[in-house]
Design a protein around this nucleic acid. Structure first.
Lengths: 154, 154
DNA sequence: TATTTAGTTTAATCGCGATTGAACTAAAAA
DNA sequence: TTTTTAGTTCAATCGCGATTAAACTAAATA
């Protein structure tokens, strides 16, 4: 039950676009997502600048800019060899996704808390609702801290 | 220790812009976030179309479009009275934030899973890393299901 | 019925980020 | 030293979503 090379290739291309779409949805440039996708799906896990622009059919300019950003954000690592640069996915903290979500929860918590502070009537319908959400967020964070420990001690 | 009216008003205005920025960061139009902010912070929790456009200094056109979207997404509820429309925040499911995050986790899980499927070498460094992330996501979901029940049975 | 009012629709504009192309730089190769 | 190559920089463009203004509709009011 082996996969044909052309199946694999077209599967990869589709997936690279899916990566692009997903990363675009969380605020990246489409090209950034496609590069991450390529570095994720390709069998050789370290690719040169040239390989990247040829496979994705993007200009040197955008590749240069986007790769610099990805490297500065520690999503991609670069290795220089001769005058070539090779790129590979940087395997970050497993909880990166969760970290980002927790930061989002913190923003919401701050907004709702400040909102309640500004309310004349702390018992208003919205004030009560916001308090419930804050409560849920706090429970969530406790719950997550526990889970992180569990995962880390395996 | 009471807050002056003008303090409250300027605090509200600042917070409304913070809501705008936050909602913009998660993919809404800035105006959508500011409307949600206004409906959240204002003491009267039900405001007319006119009150909204006057307080936020936005055009009837954008207010109309954005409010229609917010209503269709059930973020805002509308009450018609005479020929006026009144809007209030729709108090959604407490877990809305978490629901959205879980959908995001599902997308990532799908991308990584499909990526592994396409790999020739399932033991490659990236394949192993992706498997760890998938594992963490699965643990996260279990953990969340438990927490939701705990919150709901209080 | 005529008028006023609340909100909708839509064409036009504005601003901005993503992308490209081409000139440019620095370093390796010849 | 000259040439080639890899990648960078940056001005120009492209496309698109957000916003507005103004014409328009429908319903309430006079």
């Amino acid at each position: 039950m082996t996969m044909l090379d052309n199946e694999r290739l077209s599967g990869q291309n589709r997936l690279i676009d899916d990566f692009g779409a997903y990363f675009e949805s969380i605020g990246f440039q489409p090209i950034a997502g496609r590069i991450i996708g390529l570095l994720s799906v390709s069998d050789r896990e370290e690719l040169s600048f040239d390989e990247i622009i040829n496979r994705l059919k993007i200009s040197k300019g955008s590749a240069s800019v986007v790769l610099r950003r990805l490297v500065s954000e520690c999503r991609v690592a670069v290795v220089e060899s001769g005058r070539r640069h090779y790129y590979r996915l940087n395997q970050q903290n497993l909880f990166e996704l969760l970290d980002e979500f927790e930061r989002m929860c913190d923003s919401v918590r701050y907004l709702l808390n400040t909102t309640i502070d500004l309310k004349t009537d702390k018992e208003s319908s919205n004030a009560k609702y916001f308090n419930q959400i804050i409560n849920t967020i706090d429970r969530y964070k406790t719950s997550m801290a526990t889970m992180r420990q569990a995962v880390q001690t395996i």
